[in-house]
Design a protein around this nucleic acid. Structure first.
Length: 235
DNA sequence: CGTTTTTGACCCGCGC
DNA sequence: GCGCGGGTCAAAAACG
């Protein structure tokens, strides 16, 4: 990790920004077993310095972000993969990186609602309603997101964190269900979705939402504690 | 027996 | 206002 990207890391990677969804495509070595971008997979992170720096640059500077995205999307390899994912099977895996648009749903709305709520005829019901309102409102808060597209036989890639499945849904126009996972850590609200690409079932799309507030549950490389710290800048 | 997965129901946002 | 589709909940089942 270069000092530049490290500096960019310190600027707060993947904080929500007011910018449209961006999709960048990267290739990374096929021997990587998990997504490389700060997901607690230290080996991958180390092996993927350049790609890790890319979104950082995008975050740090809007204009360079545009240039970067343009560069990435126009690269022949990425383009080839985008147009025909099956065309280069066995070569470097394709990684797509998507960052969500800013989705700020203000807590103010909730607070306002709760503050103006008069104690009703049935206090118990009122409290329940308020709780429900709070829960529902919380759902609207969008965490920073991005997704990986990897070619893999297994759906759930080992990213160093422990996940609990909380739902599965059949998505329209796809024969493969989408699975929903939550980080098992109590205080951590990171979620991820795992699905297979309709056009090419060999491709697994993993979407991460939120940022881990803890270290990975198991370290792959204990000799490099700094990497553990590093990955927490991402998640 | 505690933890995780499954799965149908429910909720919500969005487009029409 | 209504229907559709995606996301979450929670009870039951499965697992270790």
């Amino acid at each position: 990790m270069s000092s530049t990207s490290q500096a960019m890391l310190n600027q707060g990677l993947f904080e929500e920004q007011e910018m449209p969804t961006q999709m960048g495509f990267f290739t990374f070595p096929s021997n990587l077993s998990c997504p490389p971008l700060g997901l607690g997979c230290h080996q991958s992170l180390k092996a993927f310095n350049i790609a890790a720096a890319a979104p950082l640059a995008a975050e740090a500077d809007a204009s360079s972000a545009a240039n970067l995205t343009e560069t990435l999307l126009s690269s022949s390899t990425a383009q080839k993969h985008r147009e025909d994912p099956a065309s280069d099977f066995g070569g470097p895996q394709l990684l797509s990186l998507q960052r969500s648009s800013a989705n700020f749903w203000a807590w103010g709305e909730v607070n306002e609602c709760l503050a103006s709520k008069k104690i009703g005829v049935d206090d118990h019901l009122a409290v329940s309603a308020m709780k429900m309102k709070r829960i529902k409102a919380r759902r609207k808060v969008r965490e920073p997101r991005f997704c990986f597209k990897t070619m893999s036989d297994v759906d759930v890639l080992d990213d160093g964190y422990k996940w609990r499945k909380y739902g599965q849904k059949v998505v329209k126009n796809t024969q493969h269900p989408r699975s929903y996972y939550r980080c098992t850590q109590d205080s951590c609200r990171v979620k991820k979705r795992v699905e297979r690409l309709a056009e090419d079932p060999r491709m697994v799309i993993t979407t991460y939402e939120g940022r881990h507030v803890h270290s990975p549950s198991h370290d792959l490389d204990d000799s490099q504690p700094s990497n553990s710290q590093l990955s927490n800048f991402f998640w």
